[in-house]
Design a protein around this nucleic acid. Sequence first.
DNA 1: TTAAATAACTGACCAGAGGTCATTACAAGC
DNA 2: GCTTGTAATGACCTCTGGTCAGTTATTTAA
Lengths: 220, 220
Amino acid sequence: MSTERKRARTQDQKHFRRQQILDAAEQQFTEVGYEGFSMANLAKLAGVVKGTLYLYFKTREEVFLTLYNQSLVRWSHVFLDQLQDAMTDQDYAKTLYTTALADGSFIPLLTRLEHVIEHNVSVESLIQSKRNFIERVDCIAQATAPVLNLSQAQSLELVKTMGVLLVGASNTDQGPSLEGETIPADVQGLIDSFSSEPIFIKNACRIISGIRADHSATGE
Amino acid sequence: MSTERKRARTQDQKHFRRQQILDAAEQQFTEVGYEGFSMANLAKLAGVVKGTLYLYFKTREEVFLTLYNQSLVRWSHVFLDQLQDAMTDQDYAKTLYTTALADGSFIPLLTRLEHVIEHNVSVESLIQSKRNFIERVDCIAQATAPVLNLSQAQSLELVKTMGVLLVGASNTDQGPSLEGETIPADVQGLIDSFSSEPIFIKNACRIISGIRADHSATGE
DNA sequence: TTAAATAACTGACCAGAGGTCATTACAAGC
DNA sequence: GCTTGTAATGACCTCTGGTCAGTTATTTAA
């Protein structure tokens, strides 16, 4: 391959190279998913050799953690853009769910964050990632409070809880594809009854109602 | 090792051998967790050679799926035993949460079920596992209805929803250990605020209230 | 009792994974 | 043009899940 690739000497060039790798990683991730993802293939896609990847990322999981952080920021912007004054609880929940799922990387990475990705990552990267998370959550909570007519504290609790519910609900439809397979009616019925969208929206509404009913403005 | 291991010829002997492997697997799983689990080590623990494992399980994930099914049954018995007439919503939620967490294998396997384990398993095993799940859920729902004073349909929806919430909530405290690490106060505060038990119980209660408020006895 | 048939079991082997590091070669400074 | 720092390389490592031709304990039939 005569890609004529120049060496990255300055900080700017290195950041650019790093982002090139991340773009290739995102591409591979959307194509083959988490389990099918390999560093050898990433190297090929990014037009570098495997060893080079490890100049820019300490481990495979550091790549994923960076992708996650980027997808979180990306999604939060999309979501904040779609918030309007005085939405119904249901509209709010539906918007949150739909925008989150529309981002191809966000949910799959979020569901693997804590029990896989964070376990092979440097403490500095972890702290940086958590700080990014705090910032996004705070920002979303601040925008949510007026929309749903909640106090700041209520809004913060709500946003955090929505994250938990999102992980739980989206888990249920990440099973294998089963296309072309013969599935018995009872099993198919079970799978259908766990369709994540209605589960998320219904329970999000219940939780919003519950939080609104807690009219204690005290901390926690 | 001169374990004098006999060959398993009859079905009974084969079932016994299979369970021996599963017991060793459970032991290894509780010791090293999902990511540290290896088939080579399982073979050593079970006192057989690696190839033999594949006479009893098609893939590594078939081992995990079987462990999951066993842990689900085990937990459901413990939980059902602890149900009493007329518990408060909070007691019910707390019992569910506590018993689930007390089983060392159940939660870690449940959180990896759909996006990892089920993706490398035969369709027959998957169907069998789903059937087992249906049976346990139905059984728990039937026992739950009188306890929380719900209709059968409400109870069924509740139990399914509790599963979703359990996955979401337990995800939040499966991060890396961070013992002996210096964690900044803001990040530590975030981690503390995601402690899974209060999140689960609070929102379980909100959801139970919400379901109880839906006094439509119509299907779905 | 013994020979033949069966299949549980073995362990060397494979491809591919994540990760390392001595070496190479390119760009900047004198 | 030469020296020097370092980005980039690619051969190499260990480990993984998984395979399979061959071995041998056990059952069956003569």
